[in-house]
Amino acid sequence: MDMIFKALGDPARRDILDRLRAKDAQTLSELEEHYEMTRFGVMKHLGVLEEAKLITTKKVGRFKYHYLNALPLQETIDRWIEPLLAKPAARGLLDLKAQLEGAANMTDKPDFRMETYIHCTQDALWNALTDPDLEAQYHFASDKVTRDGNIVTYHTPDGGVMLICTETELVPKTRISSTFEPKWDGPDMKTSRFDYLIEPQGTFCKLALEHYDIPAGQEGVADGWQRMLAGLKTFLETGKEAKFRYGS
């Protein structure tokens, strides 16, 4: 927590976070264009932000892309605000820096990246991500999840289809690659793809979510991922149903 406050104490670092909030996945060269300081100075600020887990990075080829990871801020704020809230919100994700060497999509740059630590076994996390009955315990918008082979369908409360995910590659207990076919605004919504990356860390598991090829107009999926992964973490660590719904 001290590192977070230290990182936010400098106006240049706050400005970097603002720029990543406006446009994620920026390289050092893109960021340094906005500052009069030297390239080394910008690198130093990025290092402080990364150490505080306020940004996360992914290296693709010779480029290193930077992503805002604001979840530690939410956790810090909740330390004082949570007792005052009568309603739950999407929160609770812990910060981490996760990058699996040799993972798929190493030549691609994700449009959105989120990371967390979950206090659970690798088996428990894998089961929670692949068992539709368990997914229904923490998905913020779907009380019914069904599986037909490698096709996972998330249903709306009225019995319709909200989302279809077709798993394209599974590396047991390590990675899930899947399509992301939204249906909540009709059948013509464009398809994208995502990866879950899992790595055991002692009594914790390190989980990263990377979403690729997000079509214009679907940027709001980032909030949905935050709610879903917050539910996943809470569910695994408490054993109780956890749904961070909109408006709850």
Results as ranks from 00 to 15, higher is better:
residue 113 R to G: 09
residue 133 D to A: 13
residue 114 M to P: 06
residue 95 D to F: 04
residue 39 R to Y: 03
residue 138 Y to W: 05
residue 41 G to Q: 01
residue 144 K to M: 03
residue 103 A to D: 07
residue 101 E to L: 05
residue 100 L to N: 06
residue 63 F to N: 15
residue 124 A to G: 06
residue 54 L to A: 04
residue 65 Y to E: 12
residue 147 R to T: 01
residue 126 W to C: 07
residue 57 T to P: 09
residue 42 V to E: 14
residue 87 K to R: 14
residue 110 P to E: 03
residue 67 Y to T: 00
residue 48 V to W: 13
residue 69 N to W: 02
residue 44 K to L: 12
residue 90 A to C: 08
residue 47 G to K: 10
residue 124 A to V: 01
residue 85 L to Y: 00
residue 114 M to F: 05
residue 62 R to V: 00
residue 80 W to S: 13
residue 113 R to Y: 06
residue 51 E to F: 00
residue 140 F to I: 00
residue 100 L to A: 06
residue 53 K to L: 12
residue 75 E to N: 08
residue 79 R to K: 05
residue 100 L to I: 01
residue 42 V to S: 12
residue 106 M to Q: 05
residue 75 E to R: 09
residue 136 A to R: 06
residue 123 D to R: 11
residue 125 L to N: 13
residue 47 G to C: 11
residue 55 I to K: 13
residue 72 P to R: 06
residue 117 Y to I: 08
residue 86 A to W: 10
residue 68 L to H: 14
residue 57 T to K: 15
residue 130 T to N: 11
residue 137 Q to W: 00
residue 96 L to T: 02
residue 140 F to C: 01
residue 53 K to T: 03
residue 47 G to F: 08
residue 62 R to G: 12
residue 142 S to I: 04
residue 132 P to T: 02
residue 110 P to C: 04
residue 44 K to Y: 08
residue 49 L to Y: 11
residue 147 R to M: 03
residue 67 Y to M: 07
residue 54 L to K: 01
residue 143 D to T: 03
residue 59 K to L: 04
residue 80 W to V: 03
residue 61 G to P: 03
residue 50 E to V: 06
residue 97 K to S: 12
residue 89 A to F: 10
residue 44 K to F: 08
residue 42 V to P: 10
residue 102 G to E: 15
residue 58 K to T: 02
residue 85 L to A: 00
residue 147 R to A: 07
residue 123 D to V: 06
residue 83 P to C: 01
residue 122 Q to C: 14
residue 101 E to I: 03
residue 41 G to L: 04
residue 117 Y to N: 14
residue 149 G to A: 07
residue 57 T to Q: 14
residue 140 F to T: 00
residue 39 R to V: 00
residue 93 L to I: 10
residue 76 T to D: 13
residue 148 D to Q: 07
residue 79 R to N: 01
residue 77 I to M: 15
residue 74 Q to A: 13
residue 149 G to T: 00
residue 105 N to H: 15
residue 49 L to E: 14
residue 96 L to N: 08
residue 48 V to C: 14
residue 40 F to Q: 10
residue 77 I to V: 12
residue 51 E to A: 13
residue 126 W to M: 07
residue 127 N to R: 11
residue 47 G to H: 10
residue 63 F to M: 14
residue 121 T to Y: 10
residue 135 E to D: 02
residue 115 E to I: 07
residue 57 T to W: 12
residue 95 D to H: 02
residue 106 M to W: 03
residue 114 M to H: 05
residue 143 D to W: 09
residue 127 N to T: 07
residue 50 E to T: 09
residue 43 M to R: 14
residue 58 K to R: 04
residue 94 L to E: 15
residue 46 L to P: 10
residue 125 L to I: 08
residue 123 D to A: 13
residue 56 T to P: 01
residue 144 K to S: 05
residue 141 A to L: 03
residue 70 A to Y: 13
residue 136 A to Q: 10
residue 130 T to E: 13
residue 124 A to T: 01
residue 44 K to S: 15
residue 119 H to T: 03
residue 63 F to V: 12
residue 60 V to H: 05
residue 83 P to G: 04
residue 85 L to K: 06
residue 148 D to R: 01
residue 82 E to C: 04
residue 146 T to E: 15
residue 93 L to F: 11
residue 48 V to M: 14
residue 99 Q to P: 09
residue 102 G to F: 08
residue 71 L to S: 07
residue 111 D to H: 01
residue 66 H to G: 05
residue 106 M to N: 05
